[in-house]
Design a protein around this nucleic acid. Structure first.
Lengths: 188, 188
DNA sequence: CCGGTTCTTGATTGGTCAGTCAATTAAGTC
DNA sequence: GACTTAATTGACTGACCAATCAAGAACCGG
């Protein structure tokens, strides 16, 4: 039943399935067959659309980063100085981004950046944009925006890391509180 | 040439080689053959001593954590309240622990904790001990030692993460500075 | 309804690798 | 110097898997 225009739908399904499978497995050792089956198609089709397993992973990683970026952008406008900071931080722990499977996948894609130059590039872009957003939002509120932005970024990553490595359900509000408490201290 | 008592030597060599190979590759996708060859023996011998690839990884992970613990313990005695904090933090960025291969291996072993319950257990013990150390050292210096200890732990992890994910030589002193700056703020 | 395009998969292939086993070597022991 | 025990490896296997390919199925425009 070849409905035309299946390409974007299939690709989206594969990306979704890849995130889910990597997140569930907690590892990049996931077969293309697993991903394809989860997305409701044959492994051959997955190769047809993406060409290779790594391309699937890269697309999934880009997707996670893009969704995160959109969440930030959505919260940014208006708000005023402190409101922008809160929006950026809140985006990091919004339900869409802060689910076990997503965060687990995120960690594994981070590790992928050690291996794949393309993954490293994606990550660098994301890091730079996050930092830039933070620096702008911090300007005027704090003597050294660059330094605070760096600390905030690292702290967010660390909190992510610990959230996914701690057994039991992940606690977004506790994570958010840690970052906000730091920010309150830094702003005085 | 079977010299007796080879077991501990062989095991140590394998652990070392595993850390090096995983660190270099930036991935747990390292063959037993690679590790064994790097350690100067046949793959069969590696299996003979460890039984499985996962056991090699777990031993390597335990080794990294043990070395870190020893570095902390070495710096702890005497020093006074603030000195103890500095000792714990300094241990995290001491040259022995803070080398690219080691940190890269560390990141991958963290990811392993998502898969292997034993790895998760190792990590939990390490997290608890670190936190306990920090809480004791912070007592009296800060209104809420538990909270500051949690933030410090997360921040250290995040700084590690970013250090290894940033291309170019890793900068221990910059990493140390970030954490110390936070601590200075928290102590006021 | 025909030729082209897109979609789809079963079957296959080529390669890789963890783990096993049988056999060999060289100590130590009495 | 026979026996035990530790050390060591080459060869093998059983499984798994990414990627390919050829062929079938359904839509389209003319």
């Amino acid at each position: 039943m070849p409905k035309l225009g299946a390409k974007p739908i299939r690709k989206a399904a594969l990306i979704n399935a890849a995130i889910l499978e990597v997140g569930r497995a907690g590892s990049l050792d996931v077969t293309v067959a697993q991903i394809a089956r989860r997305a409701g198609m044959s492994p051959a089709l997955a190769h047809h659309y993406f060409g290779s397993k790594e391309q699937i992973f890269l697309a999934a990683m880009a997707y996670i980063l893009r969704v995160y970026g959109q969440t930030v952008a959505q919260g940014l406008p208006g708000q005023g100085p402190r409101g922008r900071l809160d929006a950026i931080i809140a985006a990091s722990f919004a339900p869409i981004n802060f689910q076990r499977e997503t965060v687990s996948a995120w960690l594994n894609f981070y590790a992928l950046a050690l291996t794949s130059p393309q993954a490293a590039r994606l990550l660098r872009v994301y890091h730079l944009r996050l930092r830039s957003n933070l620096v702008v939002a911090l300007r005027g509120l704090v003597p050294d925006p660059l330094q605070v932005a760096g600390t905030l970024g690292a702290l967010i990553d660390g909190v992510y890391l610990r959230a996914v490595l701690t057994p039991g359900p992940i606690d977004a509000s506790a994570a958010l509180r840690v970052v906000q408490t730091y920010l309150d201290e830094a702003l005085t």
